[in-house]
Computed example of a mutant assay.
Amino acid sequence: MQLDQSTRETGWGGTVPSALDARVLGLVVVTAGLAASVNVPYGGVPFAAAAFVLLAGTGVVVHVLGERKLRRITDGLVERWAEAGGEIETVTKSATGMRTEWTVRTSDGTITIGGIALVPLSRLSIEWQGVGDTMDASEAAANMDQLAATLYEEIFEIGSPSQRA
């Protein structure tokens, strides 16, 4: 006896790929190097080296924490959409400028979720069909259920081609 269940074949494996960005990390290292070089005339090479290590280390940590925050939000949104019945095909890492982004391919179109992955400045942006919205990442994380429900309604219910006909 077989239970009557709809089986949905999707390319999404249930996880959002990591998006550590070498460009952002490179920018952090270059900026730390420039800032540390200012210290050479005042504190010498040892002081400049210590400043470089401190600044570069802090910058890397800030980027990693920002990326994790954006990734958790993206994962939470996609997971809630899939649970609500949205057909998620794939979630891939993408890059535009200095932003950390994921491209979510669905049966209803492509959604780009991302933002600036630096923890005190983390901003989340969501773009679908050329229309985008930006908000503070902490605010998005705190209101994840409401955000996911609102976006699901816009993207999968109102925005689907079958609903517009």
Results as ranks from 00 to 15, higher is better:
123 R>D: 01
110 T>E: 06
100 T>L: 07
114 G>N: 07
50 A>C: 11
149 A>M: 04
38 V>I: 14
124 L>Y: 00
54 L>F: 10
77 L>S: 00
13 G>K: 12
149 A>R: 03
148 A>D: 01
90 T>G: 07
21 D>I: 15
140 A>V: 06
42 Y>T: 11
54 L>N: 07
95 A>T: 14
22 A>P: 06
105 R>N: 09
50 A>V: 05
160 S>K: 14
163 Q>T: 13
44 G>N: 02
164 R>F: 10
161 P>T: 15
73 I>P: 02
69 K>C: 04
69 K>R: 14
104 V>W: 02
3 L>M: 12
17 P>N: 08
17 P>C: 03
43 G>M: 10
16 V>A: 05
25 L>Y: 13
135 M>D: 03
50 A>H: 08
75 D>V: 01
59 G>L: 13
86 G>Y: 08
66 G>V: 02
28 V>I: 14
121 L>Q: 15
84 A>E: 11
36 A>P: 02
10 T>C: 05
46 P>C: 01
144 M>S: 10
164 R>I: 12
115 G>I: 00
36 A>K: 01
103 T>I: 07
84 A>P: 06
83 E>N: 15
160 S>I: 14
6 S>I: 15
87 E>N: 09
96 T>D: 13
33 G>M: 09
41 P>G: 11
6 S>D: 15
83 E>A: 15
103 T>E: 07
27 L>W: 13
71 R>S: 03
60 V>C: 15
12 W>M: 03
137 A>P: 02
8 R>K: 12
127 E>N: 05
81 W>L: 00
164 R>C: 10
55 L>Q: 12
137 A>C: 11
93 K>I: 10
81 W>M: 03
77 L>T: 00
117 A>N: 08
101 E>V: 09
22 A>V: 12
85 G>F: 01
119 V>H: 00
122 S>F: 01
73 I>E: 04
64 V>Y: 08
101 E>W: 08
